[in-house]
Design a binder for these strands. Structure first.
Length: 825
RNA sequence: GCCCGGAUGGCGGAACUGGUAGACGCAAGGGACUUAAAAUCCCUCGGCACUUGCGGCUGUGCGAGUUCGAUUCUCGCUCCGGGCACCA
């Protein structure tokens, strides 16, 4: 008898079987309840890392568990295959991005298979495959038709390292999310998805995402950034023009003492033309624009501005207020013009103090008297209105509505909502992405590529020696003819942001090979939404928001009939070592392949599940892996030792068991309960594994005892089999092998999850804690169904307790049935 | 600055709706087996001290409070992590 199991042979054996028999292939079955488990698909960077191992182990346990629970489980895998690293590798190593990508995919697929993950490989997707991105191009055209795509010239975030534009979500602290290079503003044309059309729906939808972590919901809510308030027109003195402002504090409108415009505001030019301030203002605008370029990463620069010489009229008071241009006003938010109320806005206050402008308090907070001249900070809290014409005396909340109503009535203002969310710029000036299917013609203008001409293929991708320069450098690609007039025309050379591919891949998985349509509605309505989505929290905004947006777009294009793509979201923590995220530069990387080679996939999976609950960071510990390996070997030996018991009959009479057997039988049911509960409530596999370890320990102790009263064979058999079934989702190869060893003729894979019998798990005898003044003084063994009166009696009779009481009379006795007695003296 | 999390032995982490703090694992120490080592098995393992016994005191970041009883609830801090950051 070997004392260690041969994981290499065993894992190869079962993986071959899974490869050959494809037990994880799924198809729609209306008679079965479906369950869609999905882990965020990887970028094929070369090899898998520990983060993947963790992510996919978690997903695989859920998939296997749900199968045992009788669900029709779809568990697909694919590749987020477009992206910059492929182009960088191409430049550095002289390989074609396509070749590099497919090579990586092949390697990583083998790695995933070596982990024993139960994917339906027949549904595999690579987004760089024309069979995928052709549908994305079609969706783009259909969105264009619906008015959800447009082209405009704007200031964009340019990353000079990646030589491409970034969406606002992809700029982290003023730097590129991918390479950390500081972004710089650039003016150029680009294509945009109108995600703002869905801002309100995306926001409302968050309330229904009860299966998402609260903080992800909060992050999205903040990102969408809804503000309700009023838009109000301030007529410019001696002009027909109005300056329209947006404010969330209409209640402070009587406190306006000046007006601030963004430097880019279109009216600035009109205001200053011909005035003596003109040169000074133009100089200021120039300066500020330069500053803005540089300041991308810096903190808040000092507030400054310059008077334009113009005045406008506060429509509520008739006051003439000076108009300034200020560096802190953003053209991208609201209307690019701000009514300045220095008494109640800190930024306006700082500005006013700097330029000696009037501070006029109009909202009086409780127990405070504000004086414009002596205030040293703005008072931003609500209060009672003063000095505010007909609105004086109202509280802020009341006044807000009254003021909006008044403005609406008079026609110079209206209630208005703005969002922080911007439209999603998807143009990327790269090669390795999905081409945007558009043609520019000098006579016909912008022409969509006709649907029957899709896909617009990425040139050179099927030839290892093919071209892979950015498309605007590939003449063969962009020279074309106009689909409208047949004349010479030029193709769009931008490719789509790679986040577009990941925004709908979960839907394509439901009909991955369909040649007629991007998403087969029947399949999609059966499988979607994703019941459990698992991935890193770093995608809390980017990918998850885009996917929610796309789901709604696809719904409105009649491909889907759901609103939200992911019912439940699990954001797993990072894998860290020596207190830091694993990275090449820190030299603390653990290679999963080495681990699998040394300990096997089962041990690797077991440890990554056992060391921490999924949502928390996992500290990698080499010795902990040894522990997991030891545990499996212990189970292996235990089964070898009791191999004879498996031929016994399971149908024993449980009511006549001896103590040892009934104890083990009870413990087994308790374990079923605990493991099931751990998985069902929050996927805390760490506690599930602990529970099985306890059971294994108990089996081991009960059966090694020198006294001849070992548990009855049928109970041993039941306990050991239960261990295997409970462990199967986590360590599938091992459990299948053991299952076979014990003489089973069918695989464990299809067998149902063990039934939990609460009656069998119920303890007959319990320990009651006896406290005196809240301190534990004694423990007594009693029957489980003891009543409170009896408990109190036994507690008071207890020798140790009477010693503690020393004849003192109990003031009060608290009895918690089946738990404890607390005697207060 | 604002908004979320989190803090429990040497370490990773347990503890149901307030009711035995430290499950399970790792590390450490001791022992058994062995010629020896590995592997395996057994015991100890929060801290303190005048431990004669199966005992006492203390202990879940800090300080208060509610309660017969608080890791759990309330208030106020400290530290750590994350997100947003001139958003009018």
């Amino acid at each position: 008898m070997n004392d260690k199991y041969d994981f290499k042979a065993i894992e190869a054996k079962w993986q071959h079987l899974w490869q050959r028999e494809k037990p994880y292939r799924t198809c729609e079955d209306p008679d079965k309840k479906k369950y869609y488990v999905l882990e965020m698909f990887p970028y094929p960077s070369g090899r898998i890392h520990m983060g993947h191992v963790r992510n996919y182990s978690i997903g695989d346990v859920i998939a296997r568990y749900k199968r045992m629970r009788g669900f029709n489980v779809i568990h697909p895998m694919g590749w987020d295959a477009f992206g910059l690293p492929a182009e960088n590798a191409a430049m550095k190593r002289g390989v074609h991005p396509a070749a590099w990508t497919y090579e990586n995919i092949n390697y990583m697929r083998d790695q995933l298979k070596a982990m024993g993950l139960s994917y339906d490989w027949d549904r595999e997707i690579a987004t760089c495959n024309p069979g995928y991105y052709r549908w994305e191009q079609l969706i783009f055209l259909q969105m264009l038709e619906k008015g959800l795509v447009y082209r405009k010239e704007t200031t964009v975030n340019w990353c000079d390292d990646c030589k491409t534009v970034l969406a606002r979500e992809q700029v982290i602290d003023g730097a590129c999310w991918r390479c950390d290079q500081a972004v710089e503003p650039r003016t150029m044309h680009g294509w945009f998805f109108k995600i703002t059309d869905y801002a309100e729906e995306l926001l409302q939808g968050l309330d229904n995402l009860t299966g998402w972590p609260e903080r992800v919901v909060t992050m999205q809510r903040n990102w969408i950034g809804k503000s309700q308030g009023m838009a109000c027109d301030f007529p410019i003195d001696d002009s027909q023009e109005n300056i329209t402002i947006f404010t969330t504090r209409p209640d402070t409108i009587f406190g306006v003492t000046f007006m601030s415009l963004a430097v880019e505001h279109p009216l600035v030019d009109v205001l200053i033309r011909g005035r003596k301030q003109e040169d000074e203002v133009r100089e200021f605008i120039q300066q500020t624009l330069i500053e803005k370029q540089r300041a991308a990463v810096d903190e808040e620069p000092e507030k400054h501005g310059v008077f334009t010489g113009a005045y406008c009229i506060n429509p509520f008071t008739g006051d003439r207020v000076p108009v300034y241009v200020a560096n802190f006003v953003l053209m991208e938010y609201g209307t690019g013009a701000v009514m300045a109320v220095p008494a109640h806005d800190q930024r306006d206050f700082e500005f006013a103090r700097k330029y000696n402008l009037t501070v006029k308090p109009v909202v009086q907070p409780e127990n405070m008297l504000l004086e414009g001249d002596s205030m040293d900070a703005a008072s931003e809290s609500p209060g009672i209105l003063i000095d505010s014409g007909p609105f004086t005396g109202m509280d802020s909340k009341q006044a807000k509505q009254a003021i909006i109503d008044y403005a609406e009535d008079k026609g110079f203002g209206r209630s208005h909502t703005t969002y922080r969310l911007r439209d999603w710029g998807i143009s990327r000036q790269r090669y390795w992405g999905a081409p945007i299917p558009i043609i520019y013609c000098d006579t016909c203008g912008i022409q969509p590529v006709p649907e029957d001409q899709l896909p617009v293929l990425l040139p050179g991708a099927d030839d290892p020696k093919g071209q892979h320069a950015p498309l605007h450098q590939q003449e063969d690609f962009y020279v074309t003819t106009c689909p409208g007039c047949g004349g010479a025309a030029r193709r769009e050379t931008d490719t789509m942001d790679t986040f577009v591919e990941s925004s709908w891949y979960f839907a394509r998985y439901t009909s991955p090979r369909n040649e007629q349509t991007p998403i087969e509605k029947k399949a999609a309505s059966y499988w979607l939404p994703v019941d459990q989505y698992i991935g890193g929290v770093e995608h809390a905004i980017l990918h998850l928001l885009y996917s929610r947006f796309f789901t709604r777009v696809l719904r409105d294009l009649d491909y889907l009939d759901i609103d939200e793509p992911f019912t439940n979201l699990l954001t797993q923590g990072m894998v860290i070592k020596d207190g830091a995220k694993m990275s090449k530069s820190k030299g603390n990387v653990v290679d999963p392949s080495e681990l699998i080679d040394k300990y096997g996939a089962d041990t690797t999976r077991l440890f990554s599940l056992f060391a921490a609950p999924p949502e928390r960071d996992l500290e990698w510990n080499a010795q902990g892996v040894e522990g997991s390996s030891r545990f499996l070997n212990r189970v292996y030996r235990l089964i070898q030792k009791h191999i004879a018991c498996f031929s016994s009959d399971l149908n024993a009479d449980f009511s006549t068991l001896d103590t040892k057997s009934s104890k083990l039988y009870r413990k087994t049911h308790q374990t079923i309960g605990r493991v099931t509960e751990s998985i069902e409530s929050n996927f805390h596999f760490n506690t599930a594994i602990s529970a099985v370890m306890e059971l294994v320990n108990q089996i081991s102790i009960a059966s090694t005892d020198t006294s001849k009263t070992s548990p009855e064979p049928c109970i041993l058999k039941f306990s050991l089999e239960t261990c295997l079934r409970l462990l199967f989702p986590m360590v599938p190869h091992f459990c299948e092998e053991m299952w076979e060893t014990t003489g089973q003729t069918t695989v464990l894979d299809g067998t149902p999850w063990p039934d939990f019998d609460p009656e069998a798990a119920r303890e007959r005898e319990i320990t009651v804690v006896v406290q005196v003044n809240g301190k534990v003084r004694s423990r007594i063994q009693v029957a489980a169904d003891i009543d409170s009166r009896q408990m109190e009696k036994l507690a008071l009779e207890d020798e140790r307790i009477s010693h503690f009481l020393e004849g003192k009379k109990p003031k009060k006795i608290i009895v918690v049935k089946g738990k404890l007695v607390n005697i207060v003296v």
